[in-house]
Amino acid sequence: MSGVLGDHGIPVRNAWYLLLYAWDLAAFAGGTRAAVEEAPSLLGLLARVLVDATGRLLQRRLAHRHQPRVELVRGIRGRIDFTHTLAGLQLQAGRTTCRFSALTLDTPPNRVLRATLARLADDPRLAPAVPGPLAVLRADLRAQVRAMEGVPLVAVSAQDFSRLQLGRNDEAYILPLSICRLVYDLRMPTEAAGDHAVHALLRDEVHFRRLFERFVRNFWRTHATAYDVRCETLQWHDELESAYVPTMTTDITLTERAAPHRRVVVDTKFARHTLVRSLHGPLRFRTENLYQLYTYLRTQEHRSQAHRDAGGLLLYPTTEREVEEAMRVQGHTIRVATVDLSASWPDVEARLMAVLARVFPD
């Protein structure tokens, strides 16, 4: 059984699928299912999937690159560097200094992979207390570090990730390098209880809200093909045309591809509690969240009938109370819904598709 992510109550397997969709790598979900079900922690899951993905790379042969070299060789290889060859009287010994291009495993992606595998192999958070899956994992990590012996083992930095460039033939590197980047971001241990990697990943509302936003947008983009799914930049309808009027960007805008091209603006939020209570008052929707969505809808009414009839959705992740409510405000239907991320993953997927069906009723 998969573990649970600290006080967030999100199972490890669900966190993994959230990450895959957020990275736009949902196509890899099926190939990682066995590792997901056995993982006791998110960091352990990342390490196991990285081991498996790197193993496939090693079977296919790691990517090489041509690197210019200048060496003293017997005979001739490439172009002769006559200045150094003649100055050293090397011809008499049958040797020349030559400039040539040689294939090498010393590439930025391979350096990142080997450094991350080595880091995980020595990470105390993956230290096995007794013989078992963690001991096997650590042995597999160290074996792959040895298998990449032709790649220099050097420390990597954030700049190394920003400089990574993959070609059309490097698709197999996409998933492992995405994991390496996340492992780098989770490199600092924490004293918090539970899954340390998840506490680092979800350490504040901003990080988690952005992860949830990208997950929902890419999930619907993958599975709700009848709709155009994107984030959208909106302009205020300013009749005076002030140069200082700001723009607004939606988290998600859903538009029917077929007529009448109905629209729904989705705002994803993260809060410990979807409903709030004022002092001695009843539970209410969060006012500030409604104001923002209301502004997105009302400021675009001049553009078309579809904009005047557009709906809105506030979508919250939760592991507690499910909410499904609707209100009608000045011609716009606004819904407030939650997705229980502690449920089984099939239930999470079904819930998202059910919410979509409600905001676009037949």
Results as ranks from 00 to 15, higher is better:
A22D: 06
L201W: 07
A193T: 13
Y244V: 12
E239K: 03
S162E: 14
P108I: 01
S157L: 06
V348Q: 00
T54G: 06
V355Y: 05
D347Y: 03
E320N: 10
I174T: 13
L186R: 04
I80W: 02
P346G: 10
A258K: 13
A118M: 06
Q59V: 13
Y316S: 11
M1S: 11
L186T: 09
Y227W: 13
T54Q: 06
L275A: 08
P152W: 10
L177A: 03
E241L: 15
Y21N: 10
G6M: 04
I334K: 02
L275Y: 12
G94N: 12
L91S: 07
S278P: 08
L72T: 13
A27T: 12
R308Y: 08
P260T: 06
V49S: 11
A63D: 14
R61D: 14
G88S: 06
A27K: 07
L43T: 05
A35V: 02
V183N: 00
A271H: 15
V130G: 07
V130M: 11
T104D: 10
R111N: 11
R298A: 10
H64A: 09
P128E: 01
D52P: 07
G311R: 11
G312R: 01
E288W: 03
L120E: 04
R214W: 10
L356V: 04
A102S: 13
R181Q: 15
E37K: 04
G88V: 01
F212C: 08
R209Y: 06
E191R: 15
T249P: 04
Y184I: 05
R79I: 14
D140S: 13
G78V: 00
L177V: 12
P361E: 10
L103D: 06
R56Q: 13
S342L: 03
A39R: 00
R272E: 14
V73I: 07
L177Y: 02
L58G: 07
A158Q: 08
I252S: 07
